[in-house]
Amino acid sequence: MDILKTAVDISFVMVMLGVAFAFVRLIKGPSLPDRIVALDMMTVLIVSFCGLYAILSEDTAFVDVAIVLALVGFLATVALARFVERRVVRRDRAQAADAVAPTTGEGDV
């Protein structure tokens, strides 16, 4: 049993380092898509964390946690990606409106 426990311990450290790196990227940004990628990465890493913890605690309930986390994380990522895309559409519309507005202003003068 010792080999597996040691392997799980080492793997815990590596996964947590991965989460920490992704978290640094989440803070640093610089743009919103960067942050979404980092968040998505953290979800996937925590899914594997749940798997490791299931082995360590010999409790299969953590596999359920992993499934639910994978599902919810996917939904969150999709929702955030759609949000970014909406924002782009809105920005384009605003720019188009700005481009129209000054010419009408000149017409008035």
Binding site: I10, S11, A20, F21, A22, V37, S48, L52
Partner: peptide
């Protein structure tokens, strides 16, 4: 399996950074 998986997770996190 656990060690390889952990290593891939680590590299993925490092890559994102």
């Amino acid at each position: 399996l656990v060690l390889l998986g952990g290593f891939f997770c680590f590299v993925a996190g490092l890559g994102v950074l």
